[in-house]
Write a protein that binds this DNA or RNA. Structure first.
Lengths: 216, 216, 216, 216
DNA sequence: GATGAATGAGAATTCATTCAT
DNA sequence: GATGAATGAATTCTCATTCAT
C-alpha cells in the first residue's frame, strides 16, 4: 500500500531468492504496520492484525522487530531520515532564503504525499514512544522545525519574507500546512480529485502568497 | 430518569453546610477525560486513569456514561454543537462572502484555541467511534467542511477570492490551517509565547493574503 | 405475567390506598423477578433489570428484599408452600393409593401450569441458593419426592401399581413428567395449542396407563 | 491450522522422554467446561474456574475458543451432531413406526445417560446463545422434536400408537421424559442405584405402555 | 525463520450492595 | 419509601511478549 521510498534507490532485488524473500517479508512487515497504524493509530493497532496481513503468526513477527514500540520507532526514524536527506539536498542547491524555503516545502511536501501513511504516523504517533526513543524523535521534530525556522528568519532578514508576523508563527503556519497535506483530496477516489503535483503546487502557491514580503 | 417526587416537597437542602461532595462530577468526568485523551489519545487512555483523576473508582464512572466510546462521542458532539453555533452566529451577520469567511475563520479559530484539547480530540479521534456514532460524527465533519466550502465558492463567484485554485483545495487549506492552530506556540510556556488573539490574527492575516483575489 | 396464587385467597385489597400500593409494589417486585428469572435464569438476571420493570431505581429494590438470593429463596419458598398445601389437601381426601397419587399429580400439575414461571424457577434454580437456604430448599425437594414415593410404594403394595419397576424409578418418572409440563404446548400462542386442563388430562392419562398394574 | 513445515524433517520428538505436556488441551478445555457448566449453569460459570481446572491462566483459554458463548455453542453443537447421527442410524434400520420410535428413544436415552452433563447443557442452556448461534441451536431443537413427532404421527396412522391424545402432546411427553432421565437415580452413588441400562429399560417400558394403542 | 501454546498484566464493563439525603 | 452516587469485587476479553520445538 504505502509506496516505500526504497524504490527510489537502485532496486537491490537481483541478489538471490533467499535474500529477496527475506527482504520482502521484512519490508512487508513494515508496510503492513504502516498501513494499519496510519488507519487505526498506534495504540489501537494490534500485533495480531499486522501478522494477519503479513500472513505469519503473531509470534513470528518478533523475528523482525523486538517490540511494538521499536517497530513504531523504525517507521518514524525512516521518515526522519528521508526528510533530513531532502533537507540536505535542497540546502546543497544554494538558493536565496525564500526560494530555498519554497523548494524545501515543495520537495518535503512531495515526500509527505508520496508517503502519506508514513508521514501521518511521523506526525501523530511520536507520543507513543518512550524513554530514549521518545527523546530522539522529539529531537528530530525540533530539527525539522529549526530548518524551516532558520529559512523564515533569513527571509525576513533579507526582506523577502514579511516581518510583520513573528518568525515562530510563520514557521508553525508553514509546517502545519505541510502536515495537513495528507488530508487534501487526492487521486485515489479519482474523478475530480487531484494528483500530488497539483496539491503541492497549490500549497506552495498559497504559502508563498501569504508569506512574501509586501503582499499586503 | 425517574424524577423524584421528593422535589415537590420542600427542598431539604438547608440541613447543614456540609454539602457532602455534591460537586457536579459530570463536568469533572468530561474535563478529565478531555485532558487525558488529548494528551495520550483515545485508545491509549484507560478508564482507570480518568477515574483516578476524578477521584472515584473506575466502575463508578459508568454512572456518567455507558461506555468509553459514548464518552468520546459526547466530547466530539459538544465540539460540533459549539462550532455549529458559531457558524450560525456568523451567518446571521449577513456579511459578503470573503468577510463572512474570514469572520468564520476568526471565531472558529478562537474556539479551537480556547478549547485546544477538545478540538484536538474532535479532529483526531473520530475514527475511534463506530456504527451510528461514527456515521454521525463523519457527517458533522462534512457539514463543517461544507460551510467553508460554500463561502469559498461564493467568494470566487463574486471575484473576491482567487479562482486560479480549485475551491476544494482552498477549502482544505483553510480547514487544515485552523486544524493546526492548536499546535502553534501559545502562552502556557509564557515568555515569548503568544496569546490566542495574536495567533488568530496571524492566521487570519496569512489566510486572507493567500486567498484574496489578485494577490499575485 | 405470572398469575399469583395470592389471587386464590380472599383479596385483601380494600384496606386503604397506602397499604394497597405497598402490597402491589411488593407483589410487583416478586412478579417481575419471576418473569425475568424464569426467562433468563437466576444468574443471568440483574437487579437492574427487575428494577427497570418495576419502575424503580435499583437501590430502591432493597426495601423489598435484603439480597438477590433472598429474593430467589422467597420465590422458591412460596412454591414449596403452595405445593405442600396442595399435597395436604389431597391427603385429606383419604383416597386409595393410586387414586390418591393421580389426584396429587393432577392438582400439582395444575399449579405448575398456572404458575409456569415460578415452577420453572422452583425446579431449576435451587442450586443458586447457599448455606442454610440451600439446605432448606433441598429438603423441600426431598419432601416433594417423598410424598410421591410413598404413594407409589403404597400402590405397589396394594397391587394397583406395577411392581416390575423399582419404586424409585417410577417416582422419578412421575416427577420428571410433571416437571416438564411447563414446556408442553400451551395456549398463549392459541390456535391449535392446548389449555392447561387438556395438558393435565393428557399427562395424567399417560402416567396412569404406564404405571397401572397389569398394563402389560 | 497452518501445518508446520518442521514435520517434514525428521521428527525431533525422540530427544528425551519429557514430552512436555503435549496433551490435547482442547479436549480438556471442553471437558472441564462441561463439568462446571452442567453443575453451576452457564451464566454462573466463570472462565476463571474453567482455567483453574484445566491448569492454565484464563487468558490462555482463548486459544481454544473465541468467547465463552462460542464454547457453549461448541458443546451444544456436538450434542446435536451426536443425537442427529443416532437418529440417522436408527432410521437406517427401517423399522415400523412404533418400533422405530422406541429404538430411537432407547438409543438417544442411552446417549443422554452416558453424556449426562453435556445433555443437561444441551437441554437447558440454549437461551444463553445469541444471534446466529441461538437461531441455529433453536433449529436443532426443532429438528429433534420433528423426528419424534413424525414417528408419533406415523404410529397413530398405522394404528400402533394411541390417537386419543394429540400428537403434539404425546411428542412433548416423550421428549420430556428423555430430557429428565439425567436426574433419575444413577450408579455414581452406587449402593442401590441403577445402571444406565436399567434406567433406559424402565423409561422405554413406561413410555411404550403409555402410548401403545389399545392400552386402555 | 516459523510455530503455537502459554503467560501475565491490564483493559472495559457489570453488578450486587450500601448509604446519606 | 425512594434516590442516585459510590463501592469493590468479579467478569470477559485483549494483547504484547516469550519460548520450546
Amino acid at each position: 500500500m504505502a509506496v516505500s521510498i526504497q524504490s527510489e534507490k537502485a532496486p537491490p532485488e537481483e541478489k538471490n531468492g533467499k535474500t529477496r524473500e527475506r527482504r520482502n517479508r521484512n519490508d512487508s512487515v513494515i508496510d503492513e504496520a504502516i498501513a494499519v497504524m496510519s488507519e487505526k493509530g498506534y495504540a489501537a493497532t494490534s500485533i495480531q492484525e499486522i501478522a494477519d496481513r503479513v500472513g505469519v503468526l503473531k509470534g513470528s513477527l518478533y523475528h523482525y522487530f523486538s517490540s511494538k514500540e521499536e517497530l513504531l520507532f523504525r517507521i518514524i526514524e525512516k521518515s526522519h531520515q528521508d526528510t533530513s536527506r531532502i533537507s540536505a539536498e535542497v540546502g546543497a542547491l544554494d538558493l536565496p532564503p525564500l526560494e530555498h524555503l519554497l523548494e524545501h516545502i515543495r520537495r518535503t511536501s512531495e515526500w509527505f504525499l508520496r508517503n502519506r501513511e508514513r508521514a501521518h504516523i511521523y506526525f501523530t504517533e511520536v507520543r507513543n514512544l518512550s524513554g530514549e526513543r521518545h527523546a530522539e524523535a522529539i529531537q528530530w521534530g525540533r530539527m525539522f522545525e529549526t530548518d524551516v525556522s532558520a529559512l523564515v528568519t533569513a527571509g525576513q532578514e533579507n526582506g523577502t519574507i514579511r516581518d510583520d508576523l513573528d518568525q515562530r508563527l510563520v514557521t508553525r503556519y508553514i509546517i502545519g500546512t505541510m502536515n495537513n497535506l495528507r488530508s487534501w483530496p487526492s487521486r485515489p477516489g479519482s474523478k475530480k480529485q487531484f494528483g500530488n503535483d497539483q496539491i503541492v503546487d497549490a500549497a506552495v502557491t498559497l504559502i508563498a502568497d501569504s508569506i512574501r514580503a509586501g503582499s499586503d
